[in-house]
Every structure is written in structure tokens, then in C-alpha cells.
Design a protein around this nucleic acid. Structure first.
Lengths: 146, 146
DNA sequence: TCAGTTTAAGATAAAATAGTCTGAATTATA
DNA sequence: TATAATTCAGACTATTTTATCTTAAACTGA
């Protein structure tokens, strides 16, 4: 079990982060991505297609083609990616799965989870991937294998 | 997609919470549970079997049989249930799915998620289900449909 | 003891997610 | 213009999760 995001979403997040490390406009092939991130080729291809269709990436066919960010890095947050792949039901669903859970009718952890949910949201929107990429460029902050 | 726990785990949490509302030792049938919690009968049966095997519940066959807590309510936390059903990988896996993520090699949200992970853990262990049941007995705190 | 009620167990089915394969379309470049 | 590299698209397979069905076993109470 992936712990919060679907596997597909994890791959999407990883791929976009990787692209954010590249000079603006440079195209990166699926081949490079799958090799560096260790993600199944055709599965990643589908995910990138999806992100392209939704405008988060742009693509180019042919030799020296590949994928690049489809928007300014400063305008992309992790939340955008999660929204595109998994959806963001976590922002309004009861964590224990009670259909009736609400402020009037709270489950045992309603308030506690409310606070956590907001913090998770904050984690996903408070930095854009340009900032994240900058931090990750420092060698001690890299999260990709060479 | 369930938002953090698997559907199976959500059902387990709901069922155990429901049993915690009952007078100690009273047996509750699958029929009552599926009706009140709106969970598929045979699916819930499997889950309860599993929890029984793991000692969290006890069961009795025959008329007036059913399920009841297998330990003192004060000794059961939500964490025990999650541990039994989903496992607790969330306590040590990278939320973005990077296999290499660690303190030396953190992902973009490593520290932030570290704090959240601890708070989620805390949410699951800080109250036992006896306390939760007590709170939920107050009508305005009920989370079950009649 | 017998009938009815309940859990136990295992096989099966359905749906969702993850992953693979193949061929077509596009494009850079030699 | 021909070739090779790349994404695009769709069908297919595999695995995991969710759900159902059926029969057996255990138990209660009449």
C-alpha cells in the first residue's frame, strides 16, 4: 500500500520534481526519467501523457523530444499534481470513513484530523516546485539516485 | 480512493468503535453491525474474523452469538486496529514514494511530513477507545446512523 | 435431541489499480 | 528524403482490493 498518494500519483510527483530540476524548456525523455527514477517505462508514459493533457507538462515527439514543465515552475505546486492524478477528496472526507461525519456529527478524531488535513494541504501548496527544486539542487538535499 | 486507510481498515475501525459503545461482554451480530454501519455483510464477516484471530475481538457462534471486544476497551487504540489491518508503513515511508528518502537524503517535504506523521501517530494512540466511546455516547457526538 | 441461528472457511467474482505490449504518428537530423 | 527516435493511443495482462456465495461447524434454547 502506498501511504497517502496512489502509486501513480507518487510517480507523477517524482517525475515533475525531476523535470523542475532541469533548465527551463529542456526536454527530458521517458527513457531518462524511468532510468533515474526507476519507474516502469510504459506506465510512466501514460502518466506523463495524462499530465500533458491536463496542461501540467508539454511534450514533443521525435529525436531530442520529450517532456518539460507546461507552466512556470513558480506556478506549480504539489497540490496541482495530486489534484490532476488522485483528486483531492482528502480535503473533505472523514478519515475513518464515516459517511455521516461532520461538525454536527463528528467522529472520534474529527477535530484532530481537521487540523492535520489543513497541514497536509499546506504542505502541498506552501512551496512551488521552483523553490523545492532550488533546495534539492544542493547536493545534501537531492532525492534522486544518479 | 479511501483517503488514508484502506476501505477494509475503515470498516474495521468503525466496527470496533461500534462495539466499544456496547456494555462490556455483550455480543453483537454481524447482521446488526452491517445494518447500522452499512457495510457489506460477508466482507465485514471476513474483517471481524481477522480481528478475532488477532485477538482484538472475541466471537461466539450460535443464537445470541456475535462479536465483542477481545481486550479491555482502555487497552485498545485505533493504532492497534490499523496495525492489524493495514500495517503501519506510514510511520517510516516517504510520502512522495522516493525509495532513497532519508534524513541524509530528504525529499522536498521530508521534514514537514515527519511532523505530520508523528501527529497522525499521536492521533491514533493518544486516546483509547473507551474514552472515545464515552465521548461518542453523548448524542451530539454520535457518528452512527440509527 | 432437533431446529434455527450464528460464525468459520474457502472458493469465486467483480472492480480498481498497476504494469506491458504493439503499432501508429510525429519530428529532428543526417 | 530516409531513418531513427520519440511520444500517442489502444488493447491487453497481472495484481491487489473489494465483495459475494456456499457449505460446514458450533452453539442455544425449546
Amino acid at each position: 500500500m502506498s501511504i497517502f498518494f496512489s502509486r501513480q500519483c507518487e510517480y507523477a510527483l517524482q517525475a515533475v520534481m525531476y523535470l523542475a530540476l532541469k533548465p527551463e524548456g529542456e526536454m527530458t525523455s521517458i527513457k531518462e526519467l524511468t532510468k533515474k527514477l526507476n519507474i516502469p517505462y510504459h506506465f510512466l508514459a501514460k502518466i506523463l501523457q495524462d499530465l500533458t493533457y491536463k496542461g501540467l507538462l508539454k511534450s514533443q515527439k521525435g529525436p531530442s523530444g520529450g517532456f518539460a514543465l507546461g507552466m512556470q515552475p513558480k506556478d506549480i505546486t504539489l497540490f496541482h499534481i495530486v489534484e490532476a492524478i488522485d483528486g483531492v477528496d482528502f480535503t473533505n472526507k472523514c478519515v475513518l470513513g464515516f459517511p455521516e461525519c461532520s461538525g454536527k456529527n463528528p467522529c472520534a478524531v474529527h477535530d484532530k484530523w481537521g487540523g492535520l488535513r489543513d497541514q497536509i494541504y499546506d504542505m502541498l501548496v506552501s512551496k512551488n516546485i521552483a523553490q523545492m527544486a532550488k533546495e534539492m539542487k544542493k547536493p545534501e538535499y537531492r532525492a534522486f539516485v544518479d
